[in-house]
């Protein structure tokens, strides 16, 4: 009914957080990494704000496409109160129930998947750095 609103609210919060973190982030240090396991190259780690943008895009994109689905099913209308369920108290209660169950689960799953992606990318970064150190020590 309006489950996407939970993800959209999280998207607003994470977008604001991204802007704040972006301002606070200092210039990234240059480091040596190995992209192919054969030679080392100079590179920079991507900042956390960029990783947070992945979450923003998933939340905003998902919310936009789900909003389209709700328009398709006639649950969102272009006039007040915009959500058809909001005009009837019984439907409104059902809508809030759906938001607290389905909506919260949607936002939570997207966040958990993003955390997993961030975890995997951190592992890849560490492995590339370790590989570069190993190559540098074998060269010297």
């Amino acid at each position: 009914m309006a489950c996407f609103l939970v993800a959209a609210t999280e998207a607003v919060i994470t977008t604001v957080a991204t802007k704040i973190i972006e301002k606070k982030e200092k210039e990234q240090q240059e480091l040596k990494v190995s992209f192919n396991g054969v030679k080392t190259e100079a590179a920079q780690k991507i900042p956390f704000s960029r990783k947070l943008k992945w979450l923003n895009r998933m939340l905003w994109g998902g919310s936009a496409l789900l909003m389209f689905e709700h328009i398709w099913h006639g649950e969102i209308v272009p006039f007040f109160p915009f959500l058809t369920a909001a005009s009837d108290p019984a439907d409104a209660a059902q809508m809030i129930h759906e938001m607290t169950t389905v909506g919260v689960s949607m936002a939570a799953l997207v966040t958990v998947v993003w955390l997993g992606i961030v975890g995997v990318t951190t592992l890849i970064e560490k492995r590339a750095e370790k590989e570069a150190k190993r190559l540098a020590s074998s060269e010297s």
Binding site: C3, F4, A7, W54, R57, M58, L59, W60, G61, G62, S63, A64, L65, L66, M106, L109, V110, V113
Partner: peptide
């Protein structure tokens, strides 16, 4: 990101 986000939500 947009399609993956929507896919997770529909899942």
């Amino acid at each position: 990101w947009m399609f993956w986000g929507a896919s997770l939500m529909w899942l």
